[in-house]
């Protein structure tokens, strides 16, 4: 049992704007939760508070039902994977991985067994005698993961572990990581600014913006029912089209708009191309599996994504199915119920 509960955590550095403004969420035992948000929104700070590397200004934090605010990092039964890995440069891969076990007085044969096991799981066997300087970025990242796995902690905390890898390697490692942590059966808190990582890997996503939680839910929830304009535009590529009510009305794509100061949103992939009103095609961006069209539809300039087809023509027809529409309050960006 290692549930993580974060209650009303506040934090500021010096006199500036608070970095975390009362953050609360919980992670169930064995659950994989991503902390997602743009750079500088406080993700790393939050993760470091959970690890005990940083103090919260106020709030409560428990791991496995035990209040840990006053427990030193090493006794919280967590492992932390740093964004730039933080390997010991003067020790070999094997010594890097085994350090935590040695210090906890694990008997030597067991250290050897567990180190070998972690190395095998991450394909590090041929590298055990090397030092970090002699490793590639991807290999260092795997050493950092092995160092966390070998401890068999109850909670894994990972800070953007894939952000230093190139795109191809990142893509491949994503799936491997998901499998790895599923097998390790630990609770995982995974920090990332990459919505694709958060969507593909997590059971649930905690979306952060400027130190406040915007939305908590499954990737499906966040995609289907974004709680705010921020959530709507942060998740999904290309991002959701958002236009003020007046422009939406003029475009004629959305009949029967309710009254009020509204923002109207629709995802590019949910716009129907080939039926509805005529619109000029302004830009065509073929991505491969689909093509992004930027259209001129009266007041609005929506982008539409459609399956790869023969391109051509200066205009096309476009329609917004009524179920695809999202409404937000123009004042605070919050979600409004559909009519």
């Amino acid at each position: 049992m290692a549930e993580v509960r974060v209650e009303n955590i506040r934090k500021s550095f010096g006199a500036g704007r608070p970095v975390l403004e009362g953050v609360s969420f919980s992670v169930a035992d064995g659950e994989f939760v991503s902390l997602l948000g743009p750079s500088g929104c406080g993700k790393t700070t939050l993760l470091r508070i959970i690890a005990g590397l940083e103090y919260a200004y106020s709030g409560r934090l428990s791991i496995g039902g035990r209040e840990v605010s006053d427990v030193p990092p090493k006794d919280r039964d967590i492992a932390f994977v740093f964004q730039n890995y933080a390997l010991y440069p003067h020790l070999t891969v094997e010594e890097n991985v085994a350090m935590g076990l040695k210090l906890r007085g694990v008997p030597a044969p067991e250290i050897a067994r567990r180190t070998a096991d972690a190395a095998a799981r991450l394909g590090l066997e041929p590298l055990l005698k090397r030092r970090p300087a002699a490793l590639s970025g991807g290999q260092r990242q795997r050493v950092a993961l092995a160092r966390s796995l070998v401890r068999e902690p109850r909670v894994f905390l990972l800070d953007e572990p894939l952000s230093n890898l190139d795109a191809v390697l990142r893509e491949r490692t994503r799936g491997e990581l998901k499998l790895l942590f599923k097998r390790a059966k630990g609770t995982v808190v995974y920090v990332t600014h990459d919505q694709v990582e958060a969507m593909t890997m997590s059971d649930r996503v905690v979306l952060l913006h400027e130190g406040k939680i915007q939305q908590v839910g499954t990737p499906e929830d966040l995609y289907r029912r974004p709680a705010s304009v921020f959530a709507a535009t942060f998740l999904g590529a290309p991002p959701m089209n958002i236009v003020p009510r007046a422009d939406a009305e003029r475009s004629g794509l959305f009949p029967d708009l309710p009254e009020g100061d509204l923002l109207v949103g629709v995802r590019p992939e949910e716009l129907k191309v080939g039926e509805g009103r005529e619109a000029a095609i302004v830009v065509v961006e073929p991505v491969g599996s689909y093509t992004i069209l930027t259209l001129d539809a009266g007041g609005a300039a929506p982008r539409a994504a459609r399956p790869r087809t023969r391109s051509g023509g200066a205009t096309c027809r476009v329609a917004a199915p009524s179920g695809a529409m999202h409404l937000f309050d123009a004042a605070d960006g919050g979600r409004l119920p559909n009519p």
């Binding site: 690890a51 590397l53 030193p72 990092p73 090493k74 967590i78 492992a79 932390f80 740093f82 730039n84 933080a86 390997l87 010991y88 440069p89 350090m99 935590g100 210090l103 906890r104 160092r147």
Partner: peptide
């Protein structure tokens, strides 16, 4: 962060 990794390892 290397030192922080060391504390987490128990040093």
């Amino acid at each position: 962060d290397v030192e922080e990794a060391a504390w987490l390892d128990g040093l």
